[in-house]
């Protein structure tokens, strides 16, 4: 035990093994580091930047930075929380996030993180981009308005389902999710609700048809307790799927 290597997150000693990232070590020790594009089942991506922490005074994303003995990590100072809140505000104004009209509300990771960081408004000027909804698939609705470009569906479809249904095109603020069909429609792909890619969306971009608003307000995943306690929505959906 004495040769166990550790890092320190917010004053707490957290053990790690060689090859783990800061995020891996934190998850194993049940220390919450906020994240949207990270899902421990997939190769780290590092795009949402919500998990950026201050490592020995330098800003690094916890999901991609290797843990190294003696690191002193700030994961919750006002400075870090202000940065995260601002990143969330950017995501909110970038898309069209109308929570009252979204079936994912109450178990949406974007919304839950905004609650967790005490975000009371989107603050910035809204882009109000024009994005259409794709309802061509018999079982699934794809709402591009809510996509935050975390690429979890891209990774799941490519690496797990081996179907390559989703991709990202464009550049800068015009970057967007696309579907691999000549028509551009999800209904013209081999996508299925059995796919891993169907179960990993942290927001309300990929949702089942024919159901919604099933759980009363007050009883939903993040209604009573914060995401730091409850954890990722995908982990819960998996539990439900296996139950």
């Amino acid at each position: 035990m004495s040769d166990q290597q550790t890092i320190t997150i917010d004053g707490r000693e957290v053990p790690f093994t060689e090859g783990q990232t800061i995020m891996d070590a934190a998850l194993a020790a049940e220390v919450y580091v906020p994240h949207l594009c990270h899902n421990p089942e997939f190769v780290p991506h590092g795009s949402c930047r919500l998990c950026v922490v201050k490592v020995n005074g330098r800003f690094q994303s916890a999901c991609t930075a290797p843990a190294a003995a003696g690191q002193v990590i700030d994961n919750s100072s006002d400075e870090i929380m202000d940065m995260r809140r601002t990143l969330l505000q950017m995501l909110f104004v970038e898309g069209n996030h109308v929570c009252p009209a979204c079936e994912k509300s109450g178990r949406c990771q974007l919304q839950a993180l905004a609650y967790y960081t005490g975000m009371l408004s989107p603050h910035f000027t809204h882009f109000f981009p024009l994005r259409r909804i794709d309802a061509s698939h018999p079982d699934v609705v794809l709402d591009f308005n809510r996509c935050i470009l975390c690429e979890l569906c891209v990774r799941a479809s490519r690496d797990v389902d081996k179907k390559n249904v989703f991709g990202i095109t464009g550049r800068g603020i015009n970057a967007k999710l696309i579907v691999n069909a000549a028509s551009g429609k999800l209904g013209d792909t081999g996508f299925s609700v059995e796919d891993k890619a169907f179960h990993v969306c942290p927001v309300g971009a990929i949702l089942p048809k024919h159901k919604g608003f099933e759980v009363p307000i007050g009883e939903r995943l993040y209604d009573q307790q914060p995401i730091s306690v409850v954890g990722d929505v995908a982990a819960h959906d998996e539990e439900n799927a296996h139950a």
């Binding site: 069209n96 109308v98 009252p100 408004s121 809204h126 109000f128 994005r131």
Partner: peptide, 18 residues
């Protein structure tokens, strides 16, 4: 004070922005 979703981010009426 901005009270409620519509005052804060446009809310349901802003769906016409599509």
């Amino acid at each position: 004070v901005a009270m409620g979703a519509c005052a804060t981010n446009g809310g349901i009426p802003a769906m016409r922005n599509q």
